[in-house]
Simulated assay, not measured.
Amino acid sequence: MIICVCRRVSDRDIARHARAGMSFDDIQFELGVAAQCGRCEGCARDIVAQCSTVHPMAALQTGGGQHEASAWASSLV
């Protein structure tokens, strides 16, 4: 879905950059999201927060030959 109409930036573009470890400011500089009219800023920031590498989606533990997920994200983009 297009989040930033002015720059034609999709939620997938924002999520991909956020998962790569970029902050909102970095993404804004790189993609131009929320740099013109600013109406998309709230939504773009929400996507960055959900996809941020600071909050990993899952932590795998190895023990007895089993892989266990100890944390999962509440929603995926």
Rank of each mutant, 00 (worst) to 15 (best):
S70C: 11
T53M: 02
V33Q: 01
G38T: 12
R39L: 14
A18N: 04
H55P: 00
I47T: 04
I47F: 00
E30L: 15
V5G: 01
L31C: 11
S52I: 03
M57P: 02
G32A: 12
T53P: 07
E41A: 08
E41S: 07
A73W: 10
G42A: 06
A34W: 03
R16V: 12
G65L: 08
V48F: 03
C51L: 00
D25H: 15
A35F: 07
G38M: 11
V9C: 00
S75P: 01
A15H: 01
R8E: 08
R39I: 10
S74G: 14
A44C: 05
E68N: 11
V5T: 09
A71E: 14
L60E: 10
V77Q: 11
S70Q: 12
A49E: 10
M22W: 05
C4A: 03
R16S: 11
L60K: 07
L76T: 14
H17D: 06
Q28I: 06
M22H: 12
I47E: 02
V33R: 04
R45M: 02
S70G: 13
E30D: 15
C6K: 05
I47C: 03
A15K: 14
C40A: 07
Q28D: 05
P56N: 01
G42P: 01
G38V: 09
S10W: 01
C43S: 05
A71H: 15
I27N: 02
A69Q: 11
M57T: 09
H67A: 13
L31W: 02
R39D: 07
S23M: 05
A35K: 14
I14S: 06
G64E: 12
R16W: 04
S23R: 13
I2A: 05
G64F: 13
A34R: 02
